[in-house]
Design a protein around this nucleic acid. Structure first.
Lengths: 151, 151
DNA sequence: CTCATTATCTGCGCCGCGCAGGTAATCACT
DNA sequence: AGTGATTACCTGCGCGGCGCAGATAATGAG
């Protein structure tokens, strides 16, 4: 499965390239990706998704909001919360980067049968689940050998 | 294929977690991963692989060398070059993180047939190739809309 | 009304990174 | 061999994202 690792490493580099073409950080971009597909979320949830602290998330939202990529909205049910909402109009600026990917990949995926594609999806789901277990496991590890208690 | 994106995002987060457990940056870790599997490489090559500039690579090697993860070696054929070499003895410190992954994934992969696994590998190879095309395409894009000439 | 908890924001310092310039080795050409 | 261009890496500098700790506001429990 080292072939998958290569794909991953490549994806990281590609994300980085796109990020500074757009003028954002990879984290910001990943966050935008989630918002554009997943609908409005709270700031805290974004922190969980990206693995950032609350402070870092606040700053990230500041940046994205400053550039009009997202909007802060109050949650009527809990006024402590801040709902972050993607501004669809800005999606056009990301289009040149991600648009062709969608089209190109559709075309490329066409070489596989429905059955095979379903198998891939299942495979990825399993991998996601596996990844989650790994995350939990790693979180519990003793941390760095350098002096410094725990988290 | 959004399911794959989720896996990717997750992998990024996981990398980050491991990185600061070990006390390194994700870049450093990715670099180590490559060195441990791919053998000695030049500093410049590492820059290409990680997408970093020469200065950043130098600093990265400094960090890794300072913590005895790698060693600088002169290239006898071209004394300008610096070969970076992984120190296998340090691999044990990474074992707790990556070791169980290898075992766990083997076990998990066992549920698929040889044929299916071959199909996955082919799929990833194709994806890698596709990713390379995307990288080239994106590199050629007009860059950020904010004022700032070009690269 | 008071205390604890939750969700987000702010001040501070660290550190990785790009950029621009520097040094040393190598190559191309005469 | 000598001269200039190129290549490969290193160094000084400033920017910006991030974690940490504490502040603020809203909610819930009694």
């Amino acid at each position: 499965m080292t072939s998958l690792q290569r794909v991953h490493g490549q994806a990281v580099v590609l994300s980085q390239i796109i990020a500074d073409k757009v003028g954002l950080s990879p984290s910001d971009l990943e966050c935008l990706g989630f918002l554009s597909h997943g609908g409005p979320v709270t700031a805290g949830r974004l922190g969980e998704l990206t693995g950032l602290t609350s402070g870092a998330v606040t700053r990230m939202i500041d940046r994205l909001e400053g550039r009009k990529y997202v909007r802060r909205r109050a949650d009527p049910n809990d006024r402590r919360r801040v709902m972050v909402e993607f501004i669809p109009a800005r999606a056009k600026e990301l289009e040149p980067f991600y648009g062709p990917m969608g089209n190109g990949s559709d075309e490329w995926l066409a070489q596989y049968t429905e059955k095979e594609l379903a198998l891939f999806v299942e495979f990825f789901s399993g991998m996601f689940e596996w990844g989650r277990e790994q995350t939990v496991r790693v979180q519990a590890l003793p941390a760095k050998p350098k002096r410094k208690k725990k988290a």
